[in-house]
Design a protein around this nucleic acid. Structure first.
Lengths: 342, 342
DNA sequence: GCCGTTTAGGCAAGGCTTTTCCAAACCGGA
DNA sequence: TCCGGTTTGGAAAAGCCTTGCCTAAACGGC
């Protein structure tokens, strides 16, 4: 079909096959009772014309569009992309397409997209972001289900899915303890992030349960950057020369720490073990040595968001904040002392 | 409007305002001649019911949906995201929404998405990818315009937009020459990538024009990784001890090179200047020192793709492969010798 | 050969909006 | 009072698909 010509309609197919439009619909959708020959004739006609049913007309009639909207404040960054892919994993098999909107953290854009999505009669909406700190709901009285993923709504009647950062922090520290480390420092991002505070909390509680505390008595809050990781390392090594492990709030910090530790003449992991957070492949794998880190399983989180949205669309909504488990990914940077190199 | 209730229709508004549906349509769209009072009454009724016109019905009638599809093979990675944002920049003001499809480099998925998009009667399609090597067109006889961005179609009748990698490579080398470097090495990714070959070609031609050639007589092809950058540096320093600059095929390689150069006891940029490619912020800015690199202006590329698509939708299609200029981003790693530190 | 039953396929409504064409009402002027 | 010209709003069709209902034909059995 050359551009310019409008696509074939069901009537075109009907005419070519010598039947009525209704019959074509039945043949192509397997409804009603039609003779074998007629079905074949119709299928062939449809094929010949390259007929594809108009989803607009279909949606108009069915009252649903098999489309969901995904609004992200993260500009499709490192966090929202896996969430999106997970959502697609859940929705794709049900033949549901995802409409993507990048609000770029702008209220106006967000409201504009919300309106656009509702005008297009999406069956549901997923809202995702870069941080899990609670945010205002995108709107009130929205006529379709909404699920928040990797961000959370201040309205407890909404369903929000977030990683269990506290448990992730606890996992990291438990792992370090299990490799025999006890003098553990903690360098992380801004205190203003709920995620930093939760990770720190999980780490401190785990240490406390073992009768220990953070090497410097508390976390070093700073930026999510390598630069901060390097700076913090200098401070940490000065304050606690007998340090034997550092738990970092994200992988970038950890990488900075790794470089600074090495350049200070200490070995990772022999002298100081390192654990990061995020499992950002490009950072964690390129780190020297490769970084043990906590994976937030964002794709799985997105998948569950998709499934929950489907359930809500089918009339089984959930509510509240659900914290999904993180997974520790073991690499070289926290290898137990004296363990054989693989 | 509580979930479950279906959204208000134009008839609901008409009933509430005591007029006919057609009149409501005119009032809300500013068509026809209506009395001031009627318009106000209708607007108030629409407001009260939270009425939003059904885009499906609208599209059905208009033959246009004000929607375009974007198919990416890149899983929304580093390359396709800026392209997407640029496309949105161009399309958003025209009230056009973008349907996003991630084919994950899988033929089956791609065809599935293509069908879905055409069923939904998008007005046009943008195809984007991770590398510019030519690929088969996504389909033949597609009834809507298609633009390829950051990838190219083997069909010369299609419009493909790609960065001008050769010119980017030339820019990098010209810059190094302008800072007085003459013994320039080149470490890059796999030879199988058209992008590597073009960047190399641009670099070599520029050197040749100055009566020079690459330090080792040719490029070192390898992987797009830091690890390869480090390895290649060792080889390069051994083969050409008097090296005074290295042009790298991407930022990851450059970062590996930077680390290896420093650890070999040479200074960047004093002894050896470095230029990367891609301007991948998280790598280039975290590099020590921060990396001078070639930016492919992908967002601009996406914007132009959006504009070209609009033009094609309006009946003014273009064709052929268009190479868009890259921009050199100056940072510390190629500071001229003896220049004052800023 | 006739009647009841099954089968195959047509008809038309419904879903929502826009737009064209018309009709009614109203005004002023003759 | 009647007529032409405006103004204002209504009626209906179009755009495409699905589905319930209905009819006509075919078929089987007696």
């Amino acid at each position: 079909m050359p551009p310019g010509k409008s696509p074939a309609t069901i009537s075109d197919v009907a005419r070519l096959a010598g039947v009525s439009p209704g019959t074509v619909s039945k043949a192509l959708n397997g409804r009603g009772a039609l003779s074998h020959g007629t079905i074949a004739r119709i299928q062939q006609a449809a094929e010949q014309l390259g007929y594809q049913p108009n989803a607009l007309a279909r949606g108009l009639l069915a009252g649903r569009t098999f489309t969901v909207g995904l609004i992200t404040t993260d500009s499709f960054g490192r966090f929202s992309i896996p969430v999106m892919q997970g959502a697609e994993d859940a929705l794709g098999p049900g033949r549901i397409s995802v409409f993507l909107c990048d609000s770029r953290d702008d209220q106006i854009r967000e409201q504009h997209y919300l309106r656009t999505l509702l005008e297009r009669r999406v069956d549901g909406i997923i809202v995702t972001g870069r941080r899990q700190d609670p945010r205002e709901p995108i709107g009130s009285d929205i006529p379709v289900p909404v699920v928040y993923a990797m961000t959370s709504s201040t309205d407890p009647a909404d369903l929000s899915l977030v990683p269990d950062d506290a448990e992730g922090g606890a996992d990291a520290v438990r792992h370090l303890l299990s490799t025999g480390r006890t003098k553990i420092g903690h360098v992380t991002g801004p205190r203003s992030f709920l995620a930093s505070r939760l990770r720190t909390q999980g780490a401190e509680e785990t240490l406390a349960a073992a009768g220990l505390e953070l090497a410097t008595g508390g976390p070093l809050y700073g930026e999510w950057t390598e630069e901060w990781g390097r700076q913090a390392t200098d401070a940490l090594l000065r304050a606690a020369p007998d340090l034997d492990a550092i738990f970092c709030g994200n992988d970038q910090i950890a990488r900075g720490v790794a470089d600074a530790v090495r350049e200070a003449g200490r070995r990772v992991p022999e002298d100081i073990a390192l654990v990061g957070f995020d499992n950002w492949e490009v950072i964690a794998a390129a780190c020297r040595p490769p970084l043990t880190t906590v994976d937030m399983n964002l794709r799985e989180l997105g998948r569950i968001a998709g499934e929950e949205l489907l359930a809500a669309i089918d009339g089984h909504p959930s509510a509240g904040i659900r914290r999904l488990p993180c997974t520790l990914v073991l690499r070289e940077s926290s290898r137990p002392r004296h363990a054989a190199r693989t």
